[in-house]
């Protein structure tokens, strides 16, 4: 069984973002989604450090240290962009104004709980940033992740064992093997990717999965 690569997955997610959406792409793999948004569609990217209408990385030599994204990487601002302070920016999240947020994950539970900020390892320095705000801060919270960790355990779980970022907040999970919706009855397979089968997914996750009817 093979799934799809990370870039393909980013492109797959980008297909599901409608024109006119206000979208926050989390640090890490989710930022790849920006490279695959359809040309010509107006989709407005939010970066929580204070910008709506974020554009691509600047050309070399055009870096402006005042203009960065939440990952502290240099970016550009599109025509129509707006700047705002942190309290307004996080108000946009909590207040339900963002349409979609795409985040990475350590674990997602069948109840939609998300763990993505800490492995709880002893001696680790805790650092949460905006993770907990993002987890509860959009109408649709999507997770982008590999289905399995490096050691082969499932990131989709019955209950999270890592410290939680948010409770019951995830609505959809895009993995390299399949796309899942989080429903009242647990994970429902929305779309199989690569040559994956539902039986294989159930074996890998040790979960009973609903199939899309």
């Amino acid at each position: 069984m093979t799934g799809i690569g990370r870039v393909e997955l980013a492109a797959r997610i980008a297909q599901d973002i409608p024109e006119g959406s206000y979208v926050n792409l989390g640090i890490g793999a989710p930022t790849l989604v920006a490279n695959h948004l359809p040309e010509g569609l107006e989709i407005i990217l939010h970066t929580e450090n204070g910008l709506l209408g974020m554009g691509r990385a600047p050309e070399p030599g055009r870096v402006d240290p005042d203009l960065i994204n939440a990952g502290k990487q240099p970016v550009t601002a599109l025509p129509g962009a707006a700047y705002f302070h942190h309290a307004d920016s996080f108000g946009m999240m909590r207040g339900g104004h963002l349409d979609i947020c795409v985040l990475g994950a350590f674990q997602v539970s069948s109840a939609g709980d998300l763990a993505n900020w800490s492995t709880g390892a002893p001696g680790a320095i805790p650092a949460v940033g905006g993770a907990m705000d993002l987890a509860i801060g959009a109408k649709n919270v999507w997770v982008m992740t590999d289905l399995l960790t490096r050691d082969g355990s499932s990131k989709l779980v019955a209950e999270c064992t890592y410290p939680l970022t948010g409770v019951g907040c995830v609505s959809r999970v895009y993995t390299d093997r399949a796309v899942f919706d989080v429903t009242d009855g647990g994970f429902r397979v929305r779309e199989l990717l690569g040559d994956t089968t539902v039986a294989e997914l159930e074996q890998l996750t040790a979960l009973t999965l609903e199939e899309r009817s």
């Binding site: 302070h85 942190h86 309290a87 996080f90 108000g91 650092a127 907990m132 705000d133």
Partner: peptide
């Protein structure tokens, strides 16, 4: 003291 970023701002 670690505070979620939006709570820190608010």
């Amino acid at each position: 003291e670690v505070v979620p970023q939006g709570n820190l701002a608010e």
